[in-house]
């Protein structure tokens, strides 16, 4: 069976709905509002460098926190009986499937002034504002994307042969050394796909900062949303830069992965 034709509708579809729109972004980014070629859009976009770097930074921190929180869970899950693994996978997937706005809204309810957490803290004599700051935004992102880090880590780690760990233990490795010499190198592919799945959406997210940070110019996603409706050119330029930045990040990440694989 050497069928190639069935893929034609899909390829045509993807050219029209993926390649063409991206080409349009390119076109708008390099022209002005009268359609003349130029770099005005990028010059305008340059004004948002601060927001841009800040978004990447917040995404980086959120990804790092997710990785640190998720790693032990992935390992723990991978060493359980198959039935326990299935239940835990399901438990981590259910919140992921709740509507993303509802999950952010849940944190808004929890963190608001005179909300449940604030009330509890005031009873303890702690008076502080929980919402409307960068910490709340990072908390929201970590909450939103933690399962996207846990699941790929778990999937890769569940393929690590227990005998390898036992062998390392028999040969005199302590727990820390087993982690560093066996589990960590073998889990690199999981780390890479987890970091990809968290970093890409957090770097480009919008609304989280509006809901939890109380501001619409903290994250670049919100800026794109705000500008795009009125100024396609500047909006396209920012979107293009964001896409390229994410692409570069992914390429570097994967290079790192390849090297690790060779070294191991």
């Amino acid at each position: 069976m050497r069928l190639k034709k069935p893929s034609i509708p899909y390829i045509a579809w993807m050219v029209i709905f993926t390649i063409l729109p991206i080409a349009l972004i390119l076109y708008y980014a390099f022209t002005d509002d009268r359609g003349a070629f130029g770099f005005q859009a990028f010059i305008n976009a340059f004004g948002y460098t601060g927001v841009f770097l800040k978004s990447l930074w917040i995404a980086f921190i959120s990804t790092l926190i997710c990785l640190v929180l998720a790693y032990p869970i992935g390992y723990f899950m991978s060493r359980q009986k198959k039935s326990v693994q299935n239940v835990l996978t399901m438990l981590f997937m259910i919140p992921m499937w709740m509507n993303f706005l509802l999950r952010i809204y849940a944190w808004m309810t929890l963190l608001q002034n005179d909300g449940p957490i604030d009330t509890m803290l005031s009873l303890l004599g702690i008076h502080t504002t929980l919402i409307g700051n960068q910490g709340a935004v990072i908390l929201g992102m970590v909450y939103e994307y933690l399962p996207f880090m846990i699941l790929p880590l778990y999937t890769v780690m569940s393929k690590i042969d227990t005998r390898l760990i036992e062998a390392a233990e028999d040969l005199g490795c302590n727990r820390l050394l087993v982690m560093r010499k066996v589990v960590l190198p073998l889990s690199i592919p999981g780390i890479i796909s987890g970091v990809t799945m968290v970093f890409v959406p957090t770097a480009s997210t919008f609304l989280v900062a509006q809901y939890l940070g109380g501001t619409d110019d903290l994250m670049i996603g919100d800026v794109i949303d705000k500008i795009f409706w009125s100024d396609h050119n500047t909006g396209s330029a920012i979107a293009l830069v964001l896409m390229v930045a994410i692409l570069i990040f992914l390429i570097i990440l994967n290079l790192f992965g390849d090297e690790e694989a060779i070294a191991a």
Partner: peptide, 21 residues
């Protein structure tokens, strides 16, 4: 790679690019 572009490109970029088109 065409499939990967669409999976890896951020939702907001997919959104605005489709809106343009």
């Amino acid at each position: 790679n065409v499939s990967n572009i669409s999976i890896l490109s951020p939702d907001i970029v997919t959104g605005v690019s489709l809106m343009l088109m």
